[in-house]
């Protein structure tokens, strides 16, 4: 049993995009704030802070997670993935990110990190999604710029290119 006192800070450790990280947090500190303020990982954005907008979506232990509805203390010992982990290297975009750029699937970019995390997670488990499935997934995100159509196009294109790459490497 672990009881963390409300008025003091406690060490929280987890893996962030494969690398061990640690910092201190009060029990009430949200994972979204912990990522941004304690770890400086500002790729995760904070929108509504009650789980509706989806901007802060990350992946914890393979589960899509609203980081604003999760305490930093809850993910102690977990495996956390954020948008910073998507690009293969600092100067290259991943396939999904490239598809977003080609299709103008972002304008202001505020919602993009969360949407990328949802799509990356979903496409890794469902490599050949239908448009309807993508629309259902996107119902968990709000975007006020794009009207969603370019995001759907980018997602389907990324899925298609990933499948095509796999087929050609098989051959």
């Amino acid at each position: 049993m672990t009881r963390l006192k409300a008025d003091s800070r406690h060490l929280v450790r987890f893996k962030l995009n494969g690398k061990p990280v640690e910092a201190e947090a009060e029990p009430r500190m949200l994972l979204s704030d912990f990522l941004r303020h304690q770890l400086g990982a500002t790729g995760t954005h904070v929108g509504c802070e009650h789980g509706v907008c989806g901007a802060c979506t990350v992946v914890v232990d393979g589960m899509l997670t609203r980081s604003c509805l999760t305490l930093a203390a809850q993910v102690d010992g977990c495996d956390v993935k954020t948008v910073e982990g998507l690009a293969p290297s600092a100067d290259r975009l991943g396939a999904l990110q490239r598809a977003f750029r080609r299709n103008h699937a972002l304008q202001c970019g505020f919602c993009t990190a969360g949407i990328l995390m949802s799509l990356d997670h979903y496409l890794s488990r469902n490599p050949a999604p239908t448009e309807e499935e993508i629309r259902d997934l996107l119902s968990g995100h709000l975007c006020r710029c794009t009207g969603y159509t370019p995001i759907i196009r980018a997602a389907l294109e990324a899925a298609l290119s990933a499948t095509a790459t796999e087929e050609s490497s098989d051959a």
Partner: peptide
Amino acid sequence: MKPAAFDYLRTENVGDV
């Protein structure tokens, strides 16, 4: 907004809950 302060208890044992 942010939550008001609370103690956080994590356990693997129902008795503690």
